[in-house]
Simulated scan of single mutants.
Amino acid sequence: MTDDLNQRAHDLDVTVWVGKAGLDPVVDELRDQLEAEELVKVKFLRSARGGTTTEELAEELADRAGATLFRTRGHTGVFRR
């Protein structure tokens, strides 16, 4: 099961971008996308990261959206419902 999810996560296109406006504008969008899809890939742009890490932002986004952070890699995170 994990190998299948890892492959699916790898093949996903980014559908949510976090930019200079931060997490607030994307929390509902991530929640909505996870209602339709099991996995959603999110890109954290440099302007969103500021003094924090991708991992920290991804964990906060998961918490706020009621999602599970499946993994981070580089500046992207994959979230699971």
Rank of each mutant, 00 (worst) to 15 (best):
M1N: 06
M1E: 11
T2R: 10
T2F: 03
D3V: 08
D4I: 12
L5I: 04
L5R: 12
N6I: 11
N6S: 02
N6L: 14
N6R: 10
N6C: 02
R8G: 03
R8S: 09
R8I: 05
A9R: 08
A9F: 09
H10L: 11
L12G: 08
D13S: 12
D13V: 01
V14R: 05
V14L: 00
T15N: 01
V16W: 07
V16K: 06
W17A: 13
W17T: 14
W17Q: 12
V18A: 12
V18C: 13
G19Q: 01
K20P: 00
K20F: 01
A21E: 15
G22M: 03
G22I: 06
L23Q: 04
P25W: 06
P25E: 08
P25Q: 06
P25V: 02
P25T: 04
V26F: 05
V27Y: 06
V27R: 14
D28T: 11
E29Y: 00
E29F: 00
R31V: 02
R31W: 02
R31G: 03
R31N: 07
Q33W: 05
Q33D: 09
Q33C: 00
L34D: 04
L34S: 06
L34R: 03
L34G: 03
E35K: 15
E35Y: 03
A36P: 00
E37K: 13
E37Y: 11
E38G: 11
E38A: 08
E38L: 04
E38T: 12
L39H: 07
L39C: 08
L39Y: 12
L39W: 10
V40A: 05
V40F: 03
V40L: 02
K41L: 09
K41I: 10
V42Y: 07
K43I: 00
F44I: 08
L45H: 15
R46P: 15
R46D: 15
S47I: 01
A48P: 11
A48N: 08
A48D: 03
R49Q: 15
R49K: 13
G50P: 00
G50K: 14
G50I: 02
T52H: 13
T53G: 07
T53F: 10
T54I: 14
E55A: 14
E55P: 00
E55M: 06
L57T: 04
L57F: 08
A58K: 08
E59I: 04
E59M: 02
E59Y: 01
E60S: 10
E60L: 04
L61D: 03
A62V: 05
A62C: 03
A62D: 10
D63V: 01
R64V: 06
A65L: 10
A65T: 03
A65W: 01
A65C: 06
A65S: 15
G66R: 04
G66M: 05
A67F: 07
L69R: 06
F70K: 01
F70Q: 01
F70R: 05
R71Y: 07
R71M: 10
R71I: 04
G74S: 08
H75V: 09
H75T: 14
H75D: 15
G77L: 06
V78I: 13
V78W: 10
V78R: 05
V78N: 00
F79S: 09
R80F: 07
R80L: 13
R80P: 02
R81I: 01
